[in-house]
Design a protein around this nucleic acid. Structure first.
Lengths: 206, 206
DNA sequence: TACATTCGTACAATATAACATACAACTTGG
DNA sequence: CCAAGTTGTATGTTATATTGTACGAATGTA
């Protein structure tokens, strides 16, 4: 319950901040991204027109933010450059991010025996959120459901964890993994050794 | 250029199977997704037109795959429904899957000292792929670049791992984490203890 | 049941995307 | 240096995206 609420709390705040971003029309952003990507690859408009099957004039218009291309045109561009739509729509992300273990404080610490550390916050592009969960022997933690569509992955780093969900119990050890649709109550139970789990929450496109 | 060519090569040969894309034009896919999302929310075209500021007739045309909307129109739709572009482009997901450690065989086993076990295969909905990597002390592994847009997460379960990328070296220990854009060569170097890492590959929406 | 409202589709008018071609400025090769 | 090639921009034409309105069918209400 606390965990779920926390998770939701993080989601709401992180998500909306990221969403409140585009002050510029989307076609202008796309234009800028396209020009950057083209120049990074040292391509002329002519060359790009060849690669993508979109006219040189149109590409120039797009880059200058003077036209709002159709999705088909964008698709051609993305395919020709072997890109995703994201690369055309989103600004360039940082390349390497390290999160040392000691750099994080638990966001949840029930009686100290169940500790949740944020590793990577919700990322709008990947829709992925990563936590490190540490449980002391014998600790039981009940989670309320996440919103519909959220999927949870548990990657056991060490120790032993039992997961109760949908009336079933799954016992997992180091190296084991479990994924589940997380929109129902589930309970974690730590075995007789300290347990560390990488927990991934994957949010649906929404 | 060489790098770009390499990336393209990998994309074509390694990932095209996983990404087995439909042969349908993108605007038809978008139409289908839009209609599904609209109906899931119990909205009429009228209501959707209100929410998005796109005309009812146009929305109907899009849903029927009869028109290739501009990026501005798509943006309006996404914003009105509080969606990402991905949700408009990608189809929808599926309960509990457990992958015991012993259930998997390494897909990569270079001289035995570097072993990659698939945990969760590429999932079209989450665009996430999970591996467990085990390295013996002193082992070095050089990775070729992944396609553009792919992001790699390394969650250290145990041991010590050094990651060389972009001329920088990051040393990670149990509980540490790293995420990076994976479209460039990178090298893993195991410390003096056996190392286990959860490796996540997140593919951009496409 | 009759009437009102809602729904998705059709259609004509308007706006704009997308193209091919031309052109001035710049770069490259002999 | 000059000619040829390349580059991004401008322009007119065509295709199509987008709108507002009308309409028949379906649904809801008294």
């Amino acid at each position: 319950m606390v965990h779920t609420r926390e998770g939701r709390f993080l989601w709401v705040n992180t998500f909306s901040d990221n969403r409140g971003e585009p002050m510029e029309p989307i076609h202008v952003q796309i234009g800028r991204n396209l020009q950057r990507l083209r120049k990074q690859r040292g391509l002329s408009l002519d060359k790009l027109a060849e690669l993508t099957g979109v006219s040189k004039g149109m590409l120039a218009q797009i880059e200058r933010g003077e036209s709002s291309p159709t999705v088909t045109t964008l698709w051609k561009i993305a395919a020709g450059l072997n890109l995703t739509f994201s690369a055309l729509i989103e600004p360039e992300p940082p390349t390497v991010t390290v999160v040392p273990r000691v750099a994080t404080s638990p966001v949840v610490e029930e009686g100290g025996g169940y500790r949740v550390y944020p590793v990577f916050p919700f990322d709008r592009a990947t829709r992925l959120e990563v936590y490190r969960v540490e449980m002391d022997p014998g600790v039981i933690h009940a989670s309320e459901p996440h919103p519909a569509g959220v999927e949870e992955y548990l990657l056991i780093a060490e120790g032993e964890l039992s997961v109760d969900v949908d009336g079933c119990t799954y016992t997992l050890r180091a190296g084991d993994a479990l994924r589940m649709v997380a929109d129902r109550p589930h309970t974690y139970r730590c075995g007789d050794r300290p347990t560390r789990v990488h927990m991934l929450l994957v949010y649906p496109p929404r």
